[in-house]
């Protein structure tokens, strides 16, 4: 850790206005803090970063609060917009902050193809297992037999293990953390931002309003659940840590090479 980053400093340098619109105890604020601390520790100038977000609770993490250029785009398409930003100016560090409904439910195809082409984006996917902004409907990441507003007797379907899907699609960095593992999440975001190719971080987060009400848990019980159940040697959804960490040719570099080859 390089120096101590105080809350006062963060509020002055990185935040536009407070308080945030998140519910009390929401993990989105913790992820915003982790993102800010990672950017500060890497010491990247603010004009070299672009944040892109879609629609959802998690899309509010960068868009009104972070004092960094941000695009607040249509539902499910932040990765498509971010691909455009990166292709137009490959020198920029493009961070996509998106939710599970946004990245997997609506824009799953964009996520798969961004991982396949290995374009140099950093995607932080906040996974709270429901569509929280619209009233707690069932999402592709809702676990089997979990109660939501549209599945009051339990979810009959099974959830998607997003990190393993993205790893199989060919991303160069894939990791999963929870909001309990903040320090390791900060280290992971730093590593992902330094990665050339497509890097994907899934953050399991608590939703005290919709997830918690239907599970009869408050946000502190959910944090304790993350602490007690998520392990690096566990199976399935309970596995945290780095899934993939490889070096692969990146799309904008390959495009540059192609342009030089065609010109000469």
């Amino acid at each position: 850790m390089s120096g101590i980053i105080t809350t006062e400093y963060i509020r002055e340098k990185y935040l536009r206005r407070l308080p945030t619109a998140f519910c009390p105890g929401c993990g989105d604020g913790q992820i915003l803090g982790a993102l800010i601390r990672a950017i500060e520790q890497l010491n990247i100038p603010k004009n070299e970063i672009v944040t892109v977000s879609g629609i959802g609770c998690s899309a509010w993490i960068p868009s009104p609060y972070l004092r960094i250029d941000s695009l607040h785009t249509t539902h499910g398409r932040p990765i498509a917009f971010a691909t455009g930003v990166k292709a137009a100016n490959p020198k920029l560090k493009v961070i996509v902050v998106t939710g599970d409904g946004d990245a997997v439910g609506i824009g799953g195809n964009h996520l798969l193809h961004a991982a396949r082409t290995n374009i140099g984006l950093t995607v932080i996917m906040v996974n709270n297992a429901v569509y929280a902004m619209t009233g707690g409907q069932v999402a592709p990441t809702t676990p089997h037999e979990a109660k939501t507003s549209t599945t009051p007797y339990g979810n009959p379907a099974f959830n998607l293990n997003v990190s393993e899907v993205v790893a199989a699609a060919g991303a160069s960095y894939v990791a999963r953390w929870t909001t309990w593992h903040i320090n390791r999440l900060i280290e992971s975001i730093k590593k992902a931002m330094n990665k050339k190719g497509f890097s994907f971080i899934e953050v399991i987060s608590q939703c005290p309003t919709y997830g918690g009400r239907l599970l009869n848990m408050d946000h502190i019980e959910m944090l304790h659940y993350f602490r007690d159940n998520f392990r690096e040697n566990a199976d399935g959804m309970f596995r945290i840590g780095e899934f993939v960490d490889v070096e692969k040719p990146e799309l904008t570099d390959e495009l540059e090479k192609l342009i030089m080859k065609v010109k000469s």
């Binding site: 809350t7 963060i10 407070l18 998140f22 604020g29 913790q30 915003l32 803090g33 903040i182």
Partner: peptide, 15 residues
């Protein structure tokens, strides 16, 4: 240890 600063979702704690 500054865990309260780190975990606070609303940037309300200052040590």
């Amino acid at each position: 240890c500054r865990l309260c600063e780190l975990y606070c979702p609303d940037f309300a704690v200052e040590v």
